[in-house]
Write a protein that binds this DNA or RNA. Structure first.
Length: 183
DNA sequence: TGCACGATGAAC
DNA sequence: TTCATCGTGCAC
């Protein structure tokens, strides 16, 4: 496994979203290494994207999104689940990619289809907010050899309030993979 | 200091 | 379609 470096995340957000599909999310804690293959993501393009949290501007909550690329932006949703994003592009751009579903590879229990369940299975919580993904305990990696992936594009989930931004095809998932959260 | 509302998931 | 459950952002 080869850990993705800063330069991977410091690129166009849609490109990063596409390229994250098929990569491996790895979290090491308490001597246990949990691994999931990323199969579904959503791109959030910055303050002008009304569906993105950064559209609210720089706040205590969104400051990680406004920071440098390659860091984890993790927040609590509906008071009971966590969602994990990867910050993309240069500092201040405030864009990110939400990880929506993973295929269980190692040491994962329970469902992993959906951003909340993904975090629960991977033991990801607010303590990892702002974590540098170049760390040795929480990062994303690829195998030595990777093959081409068929990608499906759909509107993002749960962002109907965002007007025209709700219709844009910024949700991506691996075609025919059985671990995506929704068709 | 109060309050409406989620980038959700599960039950009914 | 409803609800559990609480942090965040904004109004007052």
């Amino acid at each position: 496994m080869l850990k993705l470096s800063r330069s991977f995340y410091d690129r166009d957000t849609v490109d990063v979203a596409h390229d994250l599909l098929g990569k491996y999310l790895i979290h090491r804690s308490h001597g246990i290494e949990r691994i999931g293959k990323i199969v579904e993501v959503e791109a959030y393009l910055g303050p002008h994207d009304l569906a993105a949290h950064s559209a609210k501007g720089l706040t205590p909550r969104t400051k990680i999104m406004f920071g440098p690329p390659g860091h984890a932006y993790i927040y609590m949703i509906y008071g009971m689940y966590f969602c994990m994003n990867v910050v993309t592009e240069q500092e201040g751009h405030a864009s990110a990619v939400l990880l929506r579903a993973i295929e269980p590879i190692q040491n994962l229990e329970g469902k992993t289809q959906g951003p909340g369940l993904l975090c629960r299975a991977m033991r990801i919580d607010k303590n990892l907010n702002g974590c540098d993904l170049e760390s040795d305990t929480f990062f994303i990696a690829q195998t030595e050899e990777s093959s081409a992936i068929d990608i499906i594009a759909r509107p993002r989930i749960g962002v109907d309030y965002a007007g025209k931004w709700a219709k844009k095809l910024l949700r991506f998932y691996i075609k025919n993979n059985s671990y995506i959260s929704r068709k």
